[in-house]
Amino acid sequence: MENNYQDLLNITAGIVETARRNAGMTQKELANSLGVIQSTISRIEKGILSPTLFHWMEMCNILKIPQDAISVGYLDHATITKIKSDVKEGGHNLPKRYRDLRCIKIRQILPIINFVREELGDQTYLKVIKEMGMRPTFFINLDNQVNFAFLNDLLEFIGHFQKVNKIASKSILKYAAEGSSHGVLSTLYNNASGQIDLMERYFKNSTKYQRAFNIEVKEVKDNLITLRANTLDEIRPTLLSIGIDMENLLWSFYETYLKKFSLYDYKNRIGTAREIQVQSTERDSDFGRDIILTVA
């Protein structure tokens, strides 16, 4: 019971600090708005003190915290991804390497983060995030964004523990099938009627995950979806700079992500459901790929 209560305090602490930073407020400013002293906010953000129901409701109103934030475990407004290159995001100063062309939401890489935390441990996760010059609370806001440099460095870190390749992506991305990797969007997926419907719902919300490329659904049949993925003009130089081998590796990770996500535990899923099959072309001269998803 004590562990469960402490877990709740820690979740609340992370959400309050994240929301406060996102709102551009100091602890003192928030305290003044609530009519409490600064040390009260400090203790809440350290996971020492639980806010009263009254103060929690007031914080939700002031900081625009969604009502289901505690149960979801993240701050999540499911906004559309916009390519960013500014110095700050969500009240956090970003390392120079991770500022330019941020086109990937935390939501998109959450399965990788969950893999690190579950397989390598929270202490290892916190250590690597610190070494990368980032704060753990940055990753509580699923609408915050990272760039390809951050994703590359995160995969490089995982490479110290296991080889990172197309085969390894199957274990690294297994958490894509869990609701905890999708924030508030999990409520949309929970009511899917089947794998095709599940994947359609994902693609309709793909801009809430990333904006490196646009996904256009070309055709939907009983057991098949055909798509076109077009890389945005702003992102093309980045793909050229990382090289074709790295680009193909990242694309293979996205294919695996789709396969693992297809096993999401939606309402009517049959226990024997298998991964969808994903076939895609090489990137063409227009920086696009054609994709076919088939339910086995």
Rank of each mutant, 00 (worst) to 15 (best):
F148V: 12
I113R: 04
S186R: 15
L8G: 03
I196F: 08
A69C: 01
R20T: 06
L154Q: 13
D233L: 06
I291T: 10
Q67S: 14
D265N: 13
A31E: 06
F161T: 09
T26S: 15
S169A: 15
D284G: 14
N93A: 07
K204G: 07
S171G: 09
D222Y: 10
F115A: 03
T124S: 12
I83K: 04
E282S: 15
S42Y: 03
N268K: 12
Y98S: 03
D86F: 00
S42V: 02
N32L: 11
T124Q: 11
K259C: 07
L75M: 04
L232H: 06
R211W: 01
V217N: 09
K64C: 06
N32Y: 09
I244P: 00
K130M: 00
H77T: 10
F287E: 07
N3S: 13
F213K: 08
D222S: 14
N4W: 05
T18F: 01
Y257H: 11
G183W: 07
Y254A: 09
T137M: 00
A192V: 06
F150I: 00
I37V: 13
A177W: 05
G133C: 01
L224I: 13
K163Y: 01
E58V: 05
K204W: 11
T81H: 03
T137P: 00
I48F: 04
E89H: 03
V278P: 04
N205S: 13
